[in-house]
Design a protein around this nucleic acid. Sequence first.
DNA 1: TAGATTGTTAATCGATTAACAATC
DNA 2: TAGATTGTTAATCGATTAACAATC
Lengths: 230, 230
Amino acid sequence: MRVHRRGREPSNDKLAPKAVVGRVSLYLRQLEVFQRQGQATVSSNQLGAALGLNDAQVRKDLAFFGQFGCPGIGYRIDELTPVLRRILGIDRTWRLALIGLGNLGRALLQYRGFRDQGFRFVALLDNDPRKTGKVYDGLPVQSIDDLASAVVTLDIRMALISVPAEAAQAVADRVVACGIQGILNFAPVALNLPPQVQIVDVDLSIHLEHLAYKVQNAHLSGNEPSAEVG
Amino acid sequence: MRVHRRGREPSNDKLAPKAVVGRVSLYLRQLEVFQRQGQATVSSNQLGAALGLNDAQVRKDLAFFGQFGCPGIGYRIDELTPVLRRILGIDRTWRLALIGLGNLGRALLQYRGFRDQGFRFVALLDNDPRKTGKVYDGLPVQSIDDLASAVVTLDIRMALISVPAEAAQAVADRVVACGIQGILNFAPVALNLPPQVQIVDVDLSIHLEHLAYKVQNAHLSGNEPSAEVG
DNA sequence: TAGATTGTTAATCGATTAACAATC
DNA sequence: TAGATTGTTAATCGATTAACAATC
């Protein structure tokens, strides 16, 4: 008599909070760890413990997107994994442009974590004439002037920007003009973009500065550094 | 009659929230932009606008650490800049170990943003025998077995970990055993550490996944992608 | 002085956690 | 059935924003 209930999506009418989406990525990764260990199901308590999170938070995060668990059992890993991939939008291949082939850019090009999640770089762009024409990972570096045609030809929807801070806004303007929908920005500058273009900033210095802050103030965190080391 | 008041530090008895510390880094960076433009003072409104933040939030963040502004005037840039640097703990040089010299590790070694903020790599470590002995940026790559002595000799307090996920926990254990106080972790895995060791995780895949989520769900964000492009 | 802007309190908003009936 | 664990409501906690007296 009961209608098939699992997988209902109660809340697909609003964007999940940033924090929730970040944790969904963590859940997905941890789920794969449990799966490799041969587990078939996982409880919110177990998943949370592995990531240092509260069990209620795990359930609430997942409940934002639908009902995926079984009371008394937990979550079936082989069911939940593809659901989370679909939620994040990584149940398919994303074709990316990489703009800026300095040290960081080339490292991003090779970064295994991107490839494993279905992200593919299909165009490399750099305005330094010493770089254009070079081939990295089988792809030629093109001038940024070629961006517009690459976007159309190669069906590119997102771009990674790893150019110096001074160049980033100008590059972003061109990216926007090409109709690219999302930017992952590694330049340490606040980019000005129209609201329809999505942006995520990754600022490496901020993270290291935060670490310096925490180390310097470790005595305030209730975690006394051991008085005697060694 | 009034006691010198500016620079009082009302709240140096608890750790600032993560979000506040992150914004302090942004303020510092933006302050330097304004300074280069020749400005002497900046208001919370101006600073916030440049970063997409509310003016009250700017004032409240700064007030967490003390009273640094002048009513009617704003904040004097040349006074506030060193204060923020001291708050973040970057008013001095930090000596770092870099563990893992793959593509990402080598990019981090060269990353200008770290150098500019007074971070210095003084030891490079990698367990791949094809890498040990090589010299990057004037520093020889050593075996991880040499970590303990390097930490003591070179006065290293923080380490960047850019090794594959599978190796990260073992590396972290050795780092902890050496008495290092903080870890910037680029491996996509939740590390298990004693509470006195500070950690900041940087997970590049999570950021790109978040961007994919936002692009896929742009229609929910109230920022309709333009119906017609071109 | 009048205008601008701070620091801070109170109000609002959002996120996390606790608790528990429903249910496998 | 008894035990485990979900989804969800209510309670708590924390962060953001509004408002304004103090003051440069």
